[in-house]
Amino acid sequence: MSKAWFQQRERGSPLMIGIILWVAQRIGRPVARLLLWPITGYFLLTASEARAASRDYLTRLHGHPAHWWQVARHIHSFSATILDRVYFLSGQFAHFDFHYHGLGLLEQEMAKQRGAMMVGAHLGSFEVLRALAIEGMHLPMKVLMYQDHNQYLTRLFNRLNPEVAASVIPLGGAQSLLAAKEALEQGMVVGMLGDRVAESEKLTRGEFLGSETAFPAGPALLAGVLQVPVLLVLGLYRGGRRYDIHIEVMPPMPATTTRQEREQAVQAWTQHYATRLEHYARMAPYNWFNFYDYWRT
């Protein structure tokens, strides 16, 4: 039986992660990147669920059965973005070649000083966006997220950059979204991921790569309740040193009155999100980092 992402045990031993971090920081990115291939091989052999999820996703995307080397490339791309987090969090942006698409839209929203939501996905690296916003652009930013997933890795990354770590508003408490509202009222950007469903969350349905699945209703509901502008933001890894930052404006969520009206508005908004995700997934296929049975619900 397949497990949801929040039930999965953390992959990779602390020793292995420690070695990679040491190489990444002391010896450098080119050498650390050589280690990504044996790591990819290890996951390809041992992580059967991730392998199956990758194959399923690539098969849906391409419309024909995926080859093992495509699965390998997919896992390699994921491990490369995790390695690069080390550099993003320590502010070493000079290693990279960033291409921006739609940066003006973010600047326009920030100039209005009324706050904006940034909705991302596990498509590409959300961490690159967070680090660029906080470290690179000094944007006042908070991120709504569940905190105890991937604990060991989270602790390590938190130590690398306490400022980025401090920008988290933990989800799950009654006051989580009150904190988000207060941040928006101060003109801050509040980021969140819109593609993964957690327990005890309101859900909606959306079609993604030809099949329906469950999406969290939270981003659409929050945008509707607070009536703030929403940007879709993705940091796609394009190989080598290149990351493409894509920013686009999401349609406004109408303020609704009845429950039925709201359900329809949430579903339409979320479908727009899913359709745009599909667009970017087709543009950069190896950036989809949901390695579990995404269409199970």
Binding site: L171, L177, L178, K181, S200, E201, K202, L222
Partner: peptide, 18 residues
């Protein structure tokens, strides 16, 4: 009010606060 009882979540808390 939250989770076990009425089953409200953080979106509900926000709307209730407003």
């Amino acid at each position: 009010l939250f989770r076990d009882g009425l089953g409200l979540d953080s979106i509900d808390a926000l709307e209730l606060a407003l």
